[in-house]
């Protein structure tokens, strides 16, 4: 059981929860995730640890509402208990001083990007971050990212904030301007696919943090498998970060749709239920 200490909506569909989890807070490093389950009938979903406060014994999760479980989480309040919380899982990000790091965050991917930006900045790298969102309202964590970046470029689909255009436009501008030693991309699979294609063109080593479907998160089921360099890997124990240029993003995109029908049906049923309450 983990108690929710604070709750805040970052945008209409993105909520930030601070949870009591002293052991996880102490162990966690940038790149780690947890598995969360709500109630006896709940499912297990992976969420990145966006921030941690070891003194206070809390971790922060940032959740985008996309289906039943993320919605349930967003409906919980301060003082409520999350039934099951386990972690920190996955390999931590390799933090080292490489020079200039170009970070790309899309949508809720900005949440898992934040601790990496922070750690990479602390390690002495020059950090240029490109944040992308559909519009101004959906952009999250700008202030926090700015605090740990040397430069921030903002791209919106509709031009309501920053520059109108795609995340790749912002990245290419930087690449054409200066030497980039490493790129990190986190966001929807489709965004990672295109950012990865871009950096490959310029031969910039790139890391992507993958968001496959998971069940246990401990290497037991293989639901999270992806092809990396032609080999099958388990995102939960071998990742979640991989060499982006080796990842088969088309397969990842395909596999993310594995339970789409059931998920959409369950979500509409759930929304119906809470509407009638």
């Amino acid at each position: 059981m983990s108690r929710i200490v604070t709750k805040e909506f970052l945008s209409e569909n993105v909520v930030k929860l601070e949870l009591e989890a002293p052991l996880i807070a102490k162990k966690r490093k940038a790149g780690h995730f947890v598995i969360v389950k709500i109630g006896k009938e709940g499912e297990r979903i992976p969420l990145t640890i966006s921030q941690a406060n070891p003194d206070k014994g809390t971790i922060t999760l940032i959740i985008q509402r996309v289906g039943v479980t993320s919605h349930k989480l967003s409906m919980m309040n301060e003082g409520d208990e999350v039934t099951d919380l386990v972690g920190p899982l996955g390999h931590a990000t390799k933090i080292e001083n490489v020079g200039t790091v170009l970070c790309a965050g899309g949508g809720v991917g900005i949440a898992p990007l934040l601790p990496i930006v922070e750690a990479m900045h602390d390690a002495g790298n020059r950090i240029i971050t490109v944040l992308a969102a559909r519009n101004r309202e959906l952009l999250i964590l700008e202030k926090e990212i700015r605090a740990h970046s040397d430069e921030v470029i903002i791209m919106t689909d509709d031009g309501s904030y920053g520059t109108k255009g795609l995340v790749t436009n912002g990245m290419e501008e930087v690449i054409n301007r200066e030497k980039v030693n490493l790129a990190i991309t986190i966001g929807p699979a489709i965004m990672m696919k295109f950012t990865s294609m871009l950096t490959k063109k310029y031969s910039i080593p790139t890391i992507a943090s993958l968001n496959s479907i998971m069940v246990d998160g401990t290497g037991m089921c293989g639901a999270c498998r992806v092809s990396v360099g032609g080999k099958t890997k388990f995102v939960c124990v071998d990742g979640p970060e991989f060499d982006a240029h080796e990842v088969d993003f088309d397969e990842l995109l395909m596999r993310l749709g594995a339970y789409k029908e059931q998920e959409i049906e369950a979500y509409s049923r759930y929304l119906e239920v809470i509407k009638n309450r």
């Binding site: 009938e41 089921c221 293989g222 639901a223 395909m254």
Partner: peptide, 27 residues
């Protein structure tokens, strides 16, 4: 890695541990 090909661990975990065959369960 096509959709619908899964390990027995995943299949049995979904059904036995996560209750996926029962309508009131989310998995």
């Amino acid at each position: 890695n096509y959709i619908g090909v899964l390990s027995s661990n995943e299949y049995l975990t979904r059904v036995n541990l996560m209750g996926a065959a029962k309508p009131e369960y989310d998995t």
